[in-house]
């Protein structure tokens, strides 16, 4: 058995889970929703095992390093963290419909990694040979994943709010009725960002610490650094906007979607369109 086989089954699990959540929205059958979560858990456990196995395989090849060093590995890890944060929120709040707006992000990541990215285990170049890599990548990606969940929730918010506006007096019907209420969605959005913001802060700080340790400058305005700061500014604005009245609900949801778009650009766009120190995505 190899890690790439396990990754295949993981991808299929996330696809099945997404379809089950869709079926749940259509049928409103609680068992279908529950099985969607169970399949997601199954995929998550497989993916955990696969990441562990890939780690071991790298040692068998004499190139031992944590599986976080190239674009394939980082996309796989990103999708793992998204499912992790989703499962935590699902476990705590049990709003099954959220699954349909979050698990597809993980599915998309896995599908892209497997179909479009080079999955070879490469030896680690000197610049990445540091434990800081581990701390930096894990904190950043957990933060990104929380923002992905917040984005999914915000999209649900925007859909539900629109529906409620158009059918003003009658209660929202159909699929939308399975969504949590706008108040709950707004609150969950805030909670997800409250998890993501400290993690992103830690990610930026560990990145700065690593840069200082390896290059002697904790900040050099490299495009990746700058974009992570842009993301940080956006979410800081989100947090402060909530304190002043009038910035909850719709505007907060939009800010959260914009924040995640910036996050994705920081993660992928910078590598694809701009140049800099973090150019593993060649």
């Amino acid at each position: 058995m190899s890690s790439s086989m396990l990754f295949n089954v993981t991808t299929i699990s996330y696809m099945v889970s997404t379809l089950l959540f869709l079926a749940f929205l259509a049928t409103k059958n609680k068992n279908v929703g529950f099985s969607g979560t169970m399949v997601a858990i199954f995929g998550f456990l497989l993916q955990t095992a696969a990441i562990g196995l890939r780690w071991k395989e790298s040692y068998d090849l004499g190139r031992g390093h944590a599986p976080l060093s190239n674009l394939f590995e980082s996309v796989v890890f990103f999708s793992w963290t998204i499912v992790l944060i989703f499962l935590i929120i699902d476990f705590k709040y049990k709003y099954r419909a959220v699954g349909f707006f979050v698990v597809p992000f993980a599915l998309l990541g896995m599908a892209w990694a497997q179909l479009g990215l080079d999955s070879g285990i490469e030896p680690l170049v000197p610049a990445l040979q540091s434990n800081w890599l581990l701390y930096h990548v894990i904190t950043c990606f957990l933060g990104y994943a929380a923002f992905a969940v917040a984005c999914g929730l915000s999209i649900m918010y925007l859909i539900r709010e629109k529906q409620e506006d158009s059918s003003a007096s009658s209660p929202a019907g159909g699929v939308i009725a399975m969504f949590p209420s706008v108040k709950v969605l707004d609150d969950l959005n805030y909670k997800a960002i409250m998890i993501g913001f400290p993690l992103l802060t830690l990610g930026i700080v560990t990145g700065a610490a690593w840069a200082n340790y390896a290059w002697g400058t904790y900040w050099s305005w490299d495009p990746k650094e700058t974009w992570s700061l842009i993301v940080w500014f956006i979410y800081a604005a989100f947090l402060h906007a909530r304190i002043t009245r009038g910035w909850v609900g719709r505007r907060a949801a939009i800010l959260s979607v914009v924040g995640f778009a910036a996050t994705i650009f920081c993660y992928l766009g910078v590598n694809l369109f701009l140049s800099g120190l973090h150019s593993y995505g060649k």
Binding site: W221, P223, T226, W227, L229, I230, F233, I234, A236, A237, H240, A241, I243, T244, W247, A262, V270, L274
Partner: peptide, 20 residues
């Protein structure tokens, strides 16, 4: 606090220039 939000968003947007 409106100034803070303006400054935070302003810093976010202007920072893009130097990455392009």
């Amino acid at each position: 606090l409106k100034l803070s939000i303006f400054l935070l968003i302003g810093l976010a947007i202007t920072s893009i220039i130097g990455t392009v």
